[in-house]
Nucleic acid binder design. Structure first.
Lengths: 212, 212
DNA sequence: GCTCCGATTGAACACGTGTATAGCCTGGTG
DNA sequence: CACCAGGCTATACACGTGTTCAATCGGAGC
């Protein structure tokens, strides 16, 4: 019984890493090779390829949710970067990136999770006064998160080219430090020198203003 | 002779649309069906599937470069949105989005182009005083562009699900208006209430700066 | 020692893919 | 009318894919 759970986990770990390296389209047989088992056994355990993907999704989501609480940061990209530093988690981070790249329902869910986290973080920052208040905190958290994750996904190698898991920590660290300064500047000093544009748009469409 | 060029263009147009709808992995036979020709003919004209992709890349890049000059905006996502409004260009925009999603060299080149444009636009804004100066204008243009495009790519349907070209104009307009306010707020009012973080980082690593 | 049961395998199947090739049809020309 | 060049099609081939299935292996229980 525990034997079953063990091979399950073994296969899932191999799948996670292979999918991270080659993308979510990596053939079953390659995953099987990595795990040192036959392709049929994977089917025997998971039933179908999509079910294996779903299991990877669930696992990645669970890890992300669990580890997220240990690190407090509003920037989801920074969070993934930090997670990737622990080489144990590099495959998970790679898989998450690939999943975000491929789209689909889990990508939405992951983004949603990150958005919620960012919202909470930003609200806390507002409370302590380090973060400026927003007219629409939820929307702000969402655009901040989607921009950070999206920019990260754009850096990924193509669907064809492999993602080097061993190099992932350095890769993400380099990217983080590369964008740190401009992003920080952007968050500290307003890009636009005056508020006329914002005010114009605000005056134009106050759809749900005033009285509830 | 002109006949050949005509079918070439016909096939290429069909390929562009099909790849936009189904993603860059859409099978040749489906493109052939759309174009009303046989799969062999596509091979006869383009030699190989990858060559067809390359031709689509070249065409999309050319259109993007040509039409870009007609619209002045620093936001590449807004530019694509505006382009998509002309239904003639919807397939090209869809293809560009799919290409950005799939990664690869053209994605890099497209992003690079958009970055250059954004840099020029921002520089002009600096000149007229509407855009605040930056410590590293090139890097700022790059993160702004990658964030805008990346966030847009994250909104795309998954690799499997189709992208509705007829709905693309409305789809992109809705997205634009949805993020307009939070983005504008972000660009008008600094997210961080003070500059201590930025200054700390600046003090920590001034690799090519004059003052210690 | 024997039996039995589940994990595991290797071969096979059905299908979809890109590509090569032999032939067909059309339209222009003597 | 005969002919023929070439854009174009239909078929075929080789290959890779997910999945199935009968056979095999290994060990726990009597």
């Amino acid at each position: 019984m525990s034997d079953r759970g063990r091979t399950d986990e073994h296969i899932l770990r191999a799948a996670l890493a292979r999918f991270a390296v080659e993308g979510l389209r990596a053939p079953l047989r390659r995953v099987a090779e990595d795990a040192g088992v036959s392709a049929g056994l994977i089917i025997h355990h998971f039933g179908t390829r999509d079910a294996l993907l779903a299991a990877c999704d669930a696992h990645a989501l669970e890890i992300a949710r669990r580890e997220k609480t240990k690190v407090v940061t509003g920037d989801s990209a920074a969070l993934l970067t930090q997670l990737a530093q622990a080489e144990e988690y590099a495959p998970v981070v790679g898989y998450v990136l690939r999943r975000l790249q491929a789209g689909g329902p889990l990508a939405q869910q992951l983004v949603g999770d990150f958005v919620d986290d960012a919202a909470a973080y930003l609200a806390a920052g507002e409370e302590t006064g380090t973060i400026s208040p927003s007219r629409d905190p939820k929307a702000r958290a969402q655009v901040l998160t989607e921009m950070a994750l999206g920019a990260l996904v754009l850096q990924l190698p193509g669907d064809a080219d492999p993602l080097d898991l061993e190099d992932l920590p350095r890769w993400m660290r380099d990217y983080s430090t590369k964008i740190l300064l401009p992003v920080l500047e952007l968050y500290t000093q307003p890009l636009l020198t005056d508020a006329t544009l914002l005010e114009a748009v605000l005056a134009e469409q106050p759809p749900e203003g005033g009285t509830p």
